[in-house]
Design a protein around this nucleic acid. Sequence first.
DNA 1: TTCCAGGGAAAGC
DNA 2: GCTTTCCATGGA
Length: 317
Amino acid sequence: MSISNKLYTSILSQKSQLNLRDTVLSGQSFRWNLNEILKGYYSTIIDRTIVFIREINVNTIEILSTNKNVYDTPINEFLKHLFSLDFQEETVFSSRFKEKFPEVWNLVQPYRSVRVMRQDPFEIMVTFMCAQGIGMHLIRRQVSMIAERYGQKIILELPEGEMVFYGFPTPSALASADPNELAVCTNNNRIRAANIIAMARSFESGKLALACVGSGKCDLETLRETLCVHSGIGLKIADCIALFGLGRFDAFPIDTHVKQYLWEWFGIEEARHSLTEKNYRILQEKARAILGAEYAGYAGHILFHCWRKEVKKMKAF
DNA sequence: TTCCAGGGAAAGC
DNA sequence: GCTTTCCATGGA
């Protein structure tokens, strides 16, 4: 398949600030093209539509896309949704939080405009099922390999040459995958490959897809139970799916980094112990008491990215 | 060599 | 029921 080399251009201007680079690099999306990011452009492919984004200033981004519609939605409307531009990030941290934790509040300033994205649920499910006890670099590699092996190949012809993209595989493509072949893409982890295939079949059957449709307002605990039925999805990954794939900004995933800052920044004693299910739930309660229940996950992701960069001194990839 | 990386599930008590 | 061990691999 080849796509016309005509790029559709659009300028998206917003009142709210968009820290595009940190948003894309903060670890919530694993499908942005590395080479383009290094050149100051950001590219991804969503449902056979290649999207380039360039940051003009903190309030304006330029969008270049190979066609006008993504999911039959005008590109500006789609990107407003993708980057949650309808959400007012000033409301994330309460005045009480700012007063109680001035050092953290000071440290987090450069990251306040990081957006929590609303991405495709199925893609997020597969992505975070690849994220068990493994580095972010390897997660990206797995997702790339899965797309290259099972996704649709799309070639963009530019004057400088061809650019090759791979769309993210459909649920049916992964549902019919051979476990041994898929395992090549999942760090040779056959259990993980089998789990992804089983989840894809559940999605294709309509069970999971239906749960996604009603996920906006349903009880978070009910949503987690629905997701955790699937082997390979525990509480943490279910919360990641809810936060990044289903727009549930109240979902607060706790991983090794979050656990670290809950102790170092907020002195929560339980964060020094291991992440058993019981302890996970206790930590979530205490974190919500500090961050507020409504947008705990949104705040948590900003803190997560801030912790990794400012304290752990980690590079984005 | 050892330890850690956006954990989950089986085994053990 | 809660806690410990195992899984699996690449990079520092």
